[in-house]
């Protein structure tokens, strides 16, 4: 029977000796954390709070000062545990002299894939992350978003059960960022466990099942979003078509008070900037498409007219 927890961290600590300061920096205070299999877990906190440190410890890129961690019951660091992990580092860079296809082939070989299986897997992943246009281009010509995509594809190559994504949306435009969020949700749908870190909170809400908030190397709190965010005493009602004049509001308030509400507040509903942005872009894209279609139609018409003229 597989262990219920994907990740078990017990007292994991990382300190750095800074000899010239004759001081010790606590990058991560003793940390206990369990992450269940199949959940999307967010590590939140400002820069320098120890998010990357935690991930690097799990991967064995750095050695813990104390404590230990297990991945699916496998002690880290170990080859076995890394077989089940995929990692997308913060601001990933790859070999610039390779193209997208060669990059994935290289990482595939490192992950123990080869032959037909690797070819098939690369096709799948290129399609999954939407990098068809980057296959034959060298990575030196990639945009930030494309690098993030190839990074994600690379992390997924050996079909790991646990994904570690370090700041996956940092520096990516909102469209790309949305794509990455969709990808995380899709991965959850495939039964993967995902740990991602971010210092931008709004994105976390939409995808994370549970989050932990870190500050200066210390885990401050941990829990599901509902646990952390829902204020059980207050209910927000979003309604369309209510009267917005004073008399109308008074009537509504009365109705609510009759249901036991002790205080009632009125605000116009406000959408997030992001959703506005996405709408505007979508609208503009639709317009552009319509415009293209119109221009194309006009061109064909003009063409047919001139060709008709030529034949005369």
């Amino acid at each position: 029977m597989p262990p219920a927890n994907a990740v078990e961290i017990r007292g994991l600590t990382k300190r750095y000796r800074l000899p010239w300061k004759r001081k010790v920096l606590v990058a991560l205070s003793p940390l206990d954390l369990d992450i269940r299999a199949g959940e999307v877990f967010g590590l939140l906190g400002p820069n320098g709070c120890g998010k990357s440190t935690t991930m690097k410890l799990l991967l064995g890129l750095i050695k813990p000062t104390a404590g230990e961690a297990r991945i699916f019951g496998e002690k880290v660091p170990s080859l076995q545990s890394r077989r089940r992990m995929g990692f997308l580092p913060e601001n990933p860079y790859f070999y610039k002299f390779l193209n997208g296809d060669e990059t994935l082939r290289f990482y595939g070989k490192l992950s123990g894939l080869g032959g037909k299986a690797l070819d098939k897997r690369i096709d799948e992943l290129i399609h999954l992350v939407g990098l068809e246009n980057g296959r034959d281009r060298p990575l030196s010509a990639y945009s930030k978003g494309m690098l993030q995509r190839i990074g994600l594809a690379q992390a997924l190559l050996h079909d790991p059960d646990l994904l570690l994504l370090d700041e996956p949306t940092a520096g990516v435009d909102p469209m790309g960022s949305r794509d990455i969020r969709d990808m995380i949700l899709r991965l959850r749908g495939m039964g993967k466990t995902v740990i991602f870190s971010s210092h931008l909170l709004e994105q976390v809400e939409e995808v994370a099942d549970r989050v932990a908030i870190f500050h200066l190397g210390i885990k401050l709190m941990e829990g599901t979003l509902d646990e952390l965010l829902i204020d059980r005493d207050r209910t927000q009602i979003t309604a369309a078509g209510l009267p917005s004049d004073a008399a109308g509001r008074a009537r509504t308030e009365e109705a609510l008070r009759s249901q036991g509400a002790t205080s009632v507040e009125f605000t116009s509903s406000r959408r997030s900037l992001e959703s506005l942005f996405m709408d505007v872009i979508a609208k503009r894209k639709a317009e552009a498409r319509a415009e293209d279609a119109r221009v194309a139609a006009a061109a064909t018409e003009a063409n047919s007219r001139t060709s008709a003229g030529d034949t005369k």
């Binding site: 000796r17 001081k23 010790v24 606590v26 200066l216 190397g217």
Partner: peptide, 13 residues
């Protein structure tokens, strides 16, 4: 947190 981050004793191996 800020205080606890900087310590002067190294008790690692």
């Amino acid at each position: 947190a800020d205080e606890s981050r900087w310590i002067s004793r190294w008790d690692g191996p």
